[in-house]
Structures are given as C-alpha cells and as structure tokens.
Nucleic acid binder design. Structure first.
Lengths: 102, 102
DNA sequence: CGTGTAAGGAATTCTGACACG
DNA sequence: CGTGTAAGGAATTCTGACACG
C-alpha cells in the first residue's frame, strides 16, 4: 500500500521540473517545515511523489496569498484531526470486539 | 493509471541502493538493452519504479546463469505476445461492435 | 561475457550570505 | 516574508578504457 507514492527517491532538480517550482522555493518550504525530504548519506535531498503533490498544494496556497506559517498551521490541524479520527475508530473497533467477547 | 510506477525520476545511485546492484551492472544492462532509462538534459540517467522491478527480475535471472542476450530475447518475446493479445482483443471488440451496429 | 576499478571531467546539489522589499 | 543570485565546495554521475577470465 502506498508503496511508490511515499518512497523518498527523487532529487530536487526533478522535483523542480515536475512542480514548476524553483529549487530555492523548495528548499525554503523545507526550512519552514512544510515538507520533510530525506537525505542521502552525502546530504542530497530525496523527495517522494507525495511530497511533490504536497508542493503543488503549497504552491497553490502561496499563490492565493497564504503565508508559510498559515499553511503549516493548516497542515498540523489536518493531521491532528486525522489522528483523532483514527483513535476514535480504534476505540469503536475495540468496543465491538469486547461486546462479542463479553 | 500507472502514474507513479512509470515516471522516470530516479537517479542511478538510488536505483543501486534499492536493487542492491552496482552502478556498473545497471549501466551494463542498459548497454545490453535490458532497460531504457531516460536522460536529463545534462545526461544523467533517470529510472522509474518499473525499471527497478525489471532490474530485480534481471538480477534473479543473471544469478540463475542466464545471459543478457537470453534475457533480452525473453523480454522481446513476452512483449510480442502481449501486443498480439491486444490486437486480438481489439479485433473482438470491433466485431462485437459491428454485430450490434448490424 | 560480465564486472571491477582508477581517471578525468561534467552535471547536480549543498550551505550561508547578501539583496530587495 | 519570500525569493533571486553569485560563490565555493562537495557529492553524484558520466564515459572510455584496462583488467580478468
């Protein structure tokens, strides 16, 4: 599942081509913690296709005048909600399981 | 469809890590026309995840003592069969379509 | 035939800084 | 704040060749 999409294997030059963003912008968005590329042993950044999609979303929001800290805040909120939903789902599954057991 | 799997975006160093093959071997298999990476404007090879899977198949066959020209022949044959199947399927579809059309 | 290696050069990427606004 | 750019260096990749077998 998600085997290709989340593998960090793409260098910044190709990400730049695919997204249309300059390398400068991509590095800056990393600095602002909007994306989290891996690094090779030599220090070269490695991105996933998921990162590329994220960058295109980010680019759109930047064009709409949003600032990096807002985008970051939004992303964090979305992630928190996601985790809450997961906890809730697991809770319900456990409840159902205990019902049957009990 | 196949959006990520066939995009040529991965450099040889990472392909080497992912497949466990040396760069030398990967370049040689290209020379023998077993794989067909793209090139950047500067000449750097770019591979897809599909290429990586191919390389792992190739590696296995090499370990079994198969020679590159045999592997190539086998690949060509498989491709020919694949295309024949496609032509046949299209032919049947057309026939069915013409039937209905009367 | 298939692969390792040393060689020299070119393409790619990295960081920190200055600039502008 | 967000981004361009020139600077210098380091990591990455490329090709052609020699070696061995």
């Amino acid at each position: 599942m998600a085997s290709y999409k989340n593998k960090k294997v793409i260098t910044i030059g190709i990400v730049s081509e695919l997204t249309g963003l300059t390398e400068r912008k991509i590095r800056y968005y990393e600095e602002r913690k909007l994306i989290f590329p891996d690094r090779s042993s030599g220090g070269t950044r490695k991105f996933s296709f998921h990162d590329i999609e994220l960058l295109m979303d980010i680019a759109e929001k930047m064009e709409d005048g949003m600032q990096t800290f807002e985008i970051r805040k939004q992303a964090k909120r979305a992630e928190t909600e996601f985790e809450a939903k997961n906890r809730m789902r697991r809770g319900q599954l456990n409840a159902a399981f205990n019902m049957r057991k009990g």
